[in-house]
Design a protein around this nucleic acid. Structure first.
Lengths: 350, 350
DNA sequence: ATTCTTAACGAAAACGTTTTCGTGTTAACA
DNA sequence: TGTTAACACGAAAACGTTTTCGTTAAGAAT
C-alpha cells in the first residue's frame, strides 16, 4: 500500500524545491525545459494527482455542491439529482447528498454538517416539517454567510434566493381543462394539505380551470389527503378516503390527482367499484413516473421534466458561484426559473 | 455577508494566541477558567464552527464516503443509498454520490475525481459496461493506494475487498420452488445476459430449483433479454420477445422474472393474450419496488432489503476506516456479507 | 571592470486547524 | 535568598498546495 505521492516527495527525489515541482507541472516558463521534462516524467510515473483537500483549503472553495432533499426513494427527486449530477460533473463539480427525510431537525443538522467548508453552495427542496413550522432561519443563515442556495420545487417566497419551479398552476389548469374538453362534467381533485406548496398551487390550477369553463367548484369533490408519513402504511387510509369520495359522489366522471400514487389508487378504487377507466371516469395525475407508464391502463400525466429542473438548478448555482469569484457583490438579483410542464396522454383519458 | 469566523480572528479580537483559542474551545486544562469562558462566549456569539476542510487536511481524512452507482433513478439503488446515508450520518460521515450511468469511462472518471483526497473510501456497484469489459484496474488502483472499497450487489470475485450481496441463488430458488409448490409444471424465466452477475446467479437458482424438484430445464423457456439501454425505449422489444415466448410455449403456467419490470411486462402481455393471472399463469419477480406493490394484480416478489444492504455496506466501510486508523496493517481479511431475501406474497401467485 | 538583464530556481506565506514543545511568571519550599 | 514546581500561555510545525517575491549566476552591455 503505497501512499499517494505529494509535491514534497517529488521535490526530494529530484533534488529541487517544491515550488519548482509545482511550477514545472503547470508548464511555467520560469522553469527550464529540462526540469519540466524531468518532473513531468516522474509525476506521470508515480501517477501524481494534486490533493483536492489542499486545493480546497487554499482556494477557499471546494468545487462541491450540496443537495438536500426530503427523500431519495422517490422518482421525482432522484431524477432531479440525476440532472444536477450531470450538469455539475460536466463543470468539474462534485455532488454531496443529504436527506432530510421530511424532518426539520435532520434538514438543519445536514445543512450545518455541510456548511462548514465542505461545499460551495446548496441546492435543496424543503422538507414538509419545515414547511409546516415555517422556520426558515437556517436558510437565511447560510445565505448570510455567503453560501448561496438554489431551491427547487418546494420553495418559499420568504427566502431570497434563486429558484427553479414547475408551473404547477398552469400544468394543473391544462390537465383539468383537458378533462373538461374530453367531456367531464364533475371533476374531483385528490390533493394534499395546504402547507405543501405544490399541493396548494395545483389545487389553484384546478379551480382556475373550472372557473374558466364556467363550472362551479364543489367542495365535496376536493379531497385533501392527510399525508403525514403516508408513504408506507397509511396507504389503506388513502384507499378508504377515495372510496368514500366515489360512493358519496356518484356523478364523478373525472379525477385530477396531484401525484402519481393518488392517481393510480383512484383507478384501483374505481375499478373495484365496477367503474371503467376511461369510459366512466377519466384520470390525470401530476408527475410522470414509472407507475404511470406501467399501470393498466397507463396513466395520462403532467410531466415535469425533472432532469431539466436539476440541470437548471445546478446551472444557476454554479453561475452564481463563479460570478461571485470574478467580482464581489455585483448582481444581488435572484431569479426564479419556471419549467414548463407537458401533458403526456396515455390511456386513462379518452 | 459576513465571512465565517476563524480561530485567527477570535485570537486577534481577544488578544490571545491561536493556540490558546483552540485549546480553550476544547476545554484544555492548560488554559485558565477565565480565558476558557471568554473564548467560548465569543465563539458562541459569532457562531464559530471549525472549518471541515482544514480539519480534513490536518487529519488526512475527510469523514466522507463516496458512493458510485450505475443509476440513481432506480428503486434498488436509491434505497441502498438511503441505507448508506442513514448509517453514515449517524457516524458523522457525509455521503458524496457519483453516477456511472452504466458507463465504464464515467465510472473511472468519477472515481478519479473523488480519489484525490475528497473521500476516505468507496461504496460501489459495478456498471454494466465495466462488467462486460472485465477491466477492473481502477478498483485495484484505489485499493492499492489505501482507499478501501466495499462493493454491493454487482460484485466481482477478482477484486479483493469487502462485499455485500443478496443471496440471489437462494432467493431465486425459493421463488421458483414456490411456483412449483403452487402447481406450476412449466416455468419460464425472464433474465438478462450473463455478464450481469445477478442475472446469471438468479438463473442458476432457477435451474437448481427445477433440478431439485425433478423438472428437466427447457432451453426454450429461458429468455435472455438483451438489455443494452433497455431502460427507455427498447421496452417495445421486450414486450415482443415475451409475447413470442408465450405464443411458442403455450404450456407455460409460471414465470420467474429477474426484475420487476420484466415481471409486470409479462403480466401485461399475458393478459393481452387472454390469459389470467394467477389462474392461468403465476408470476414472481425479483426485487420488490413500487411497481410490484401497485400493479394489478399486485406482484409476488423476492424482496432484497435494500436499505439493509446500504447500512451494512456503510458499516463495513466505516469499520475498516476506523480500524486502519487505530493500528496499521492488521487484518487484511475481507468479508462478504450475504443479505437474506424474503418472499413477499401478493396476488400474482395462488 | 562595472553595471544591467535575464534565466532558473528557492524561500516563505497563505489557507485553518491541532498539537508539541518551549517559556515566562508566580508561588512554595528549603 | 535561591531552587523548584505548577500554571498559563505562545511559537512553530504539520497537512499539501499555489504564488509572490526574492536570489544567484551567467551573459550582455557600457
Amino acid at each position: 500500500m503505497k501512499r499517494k505521492v505529494t509535491l514534497k516527495q517529488i521535490a526530494r527525489e529530484l533534488d529541487v524545491s517544491i515550488s519548482t515541482v509545482s511550477k514545472a507541472l503547470r508548464n511555467s516558463k520560469e522553469i527550464s525545459e529540462d526540469t519540466i521534462q524531468k518532473v513531468q516524467a516522474f509525476a506521470k510515473l508515480y501517477n501524481y494527482r494534486p490533493n483536492n483537500i489542499a486545493l480546497s483549503l487554499k482556494n477557499r472553495k471546494t468545487k462541491t455542491i450540496g443537495v438536500i432533499i426530503p427523500e431519495i426513494v422517490h422518482h421525482f427527486f432522484s431524477k432531479v439529482i440525476r440532472g444536477v449530477e450531470l450538469y455539475a460533473n460536466n463543470k468539474g463539480y462534485n455532488v454531496i447528498v443529504g436527506l432530510s427525510n421530511e424532518s426539520f431537525d435532520k434538514e438543519v443538522i445536514n445543512m450545518e454538517m455541510l456548511a462548514n467548508g465542505s461545499i460551495d453552495g446548496f441546492i435543496l427542496s424543503i422538507s414538509k416539517e419545515t414547511l409546516k413550522k415555517q422556520d426558515y432561519h437556517h436558510f437565511n443563515e447560510s445565505i448570510n454567510q455567503g453560501m448561496p442556495i438554489v431551491m427547487f420545487d418546494r420553495v418559499v417566497s420568504e427566502i431570497n434566493c434563486d429558484k427553479v419551479v414547475v408551473d404547477d398552476v398552469l400544468g394543473s389548469k391544462n390537465a383539468v381543462a383537458k378533462l373538461i374538453q374530453n367531456g367531464c362534467k364533475s371533476i374531483a381533485i385528490l390533493t394534499t394539505n395546504d402547507y405543501v406548496s405544490v399541493g396548494k398551487l395545483r389545487t389553484q390550477g384546478y379551480l382556475e380551470a373550472l372557473e374558466e369553463h364556467g363550472i362551479l367548484p364543489n367542495g365535496n369533490l376536493i379531497l385533501k389527503v392527510d399525508d403525514n408519513r403516508l408513504s408506507e402504511e397509511h396507504f389503506d387510509a388513502l384507499e378508504k378516503e377515495i372510496k368514500q369520495l366515489f360512493i358519496n359522489n356518484k356523478q364523478i366522471d373525472g379525477v385530477f390527482a396531484v401525484n402519481e400514487l393518488y392517481a393510480i389508487t383512484a383507478i384501483k378504487v374505481a375499478r373495484s367499484l365496477g367503474l371503467n377507466i376511461p369510459e366512466n371516469i377519466q384520470v390525470i395525475g401530476f408527475t410522470d413516473g414509472v407507475l404511470s407508464k406501467h399501470s393498466t391502463p397507463s396513466l395520462t400525466t403532467v410531466s415535469q421534466h425533472e432532469q431539466v429542473i436539476g440541470e437548471k438548478a445546478a446551472e444557476l448555482l454554479i453561475q452564481r458561484l463563479e460570478d461571485d469569484e470574478a467580482d464581489d457583490e455585483t448582481e444581488e438579483h435572484y431569479q426564479t426559473l419556471v419549467i414548463a410542464t407537458e401533458l403526456v396522454e396515455r390511456n386513462s383519458t379518452k
